[in-house]
């Protein structure tokens, strides 16, 4: 088995991540007051995706782990996209 270096994230980084997540949460609530009609869901999901990216990168240490973990996450996302696409092959063509 390979030996690994352990990365210790400074508190300051976590503090910035916390501030970023709170800001995006505030933004999520704020945009609900604005009528974005057709793109409402798109905007909400985009903000949620950015938040998920930050959590994965810093809180879940993906930024500091070996590329194997990144491959796993990409694989999971690819499966997720395919599941949605195949489900839509029903809903969009009924």
């Amino acid at each position: 088995m390979q030996t690994e270096t352990v990365h210790i994230t400074p508190y300051r980084t976590y503090a910035w991540v916390l501030i970023a997540l709170l800001s995006f949460t505030f933004l999520t609530i704020t945009v609900t007051w604005i009528d974005l009609s057709a793109i409402t869901v798109f905007v909400a999901l985009t903000i949620a995706s950015v938040k998920a990216y930050i959590v994965l990168t810093y809180f879940m240490h993906l930024k500091f782990e070996s590329s194997l973990f990144r491959v796993f996450v990409i694989m999971v996302l690819a499966i997720y996209v395919l599941v949605i696409a195949f489900t839509l092959s029903d809903y969009l063509f009924r």
Partner: peptide, 22 residues
């Protein structure tokens, strides 16, 4: 095997496109 689930649903009213894909 992850992407064959809807073959349980051919008679459930799915779109014809979904049916042949699955």
């Amino acid at each position: 095997g992850y992407f064959v689930w809807a073959h349980h649903m051919y008679t459930s009213g799915m779109s014809p496109t979904a049916r042949w894909i699955f």
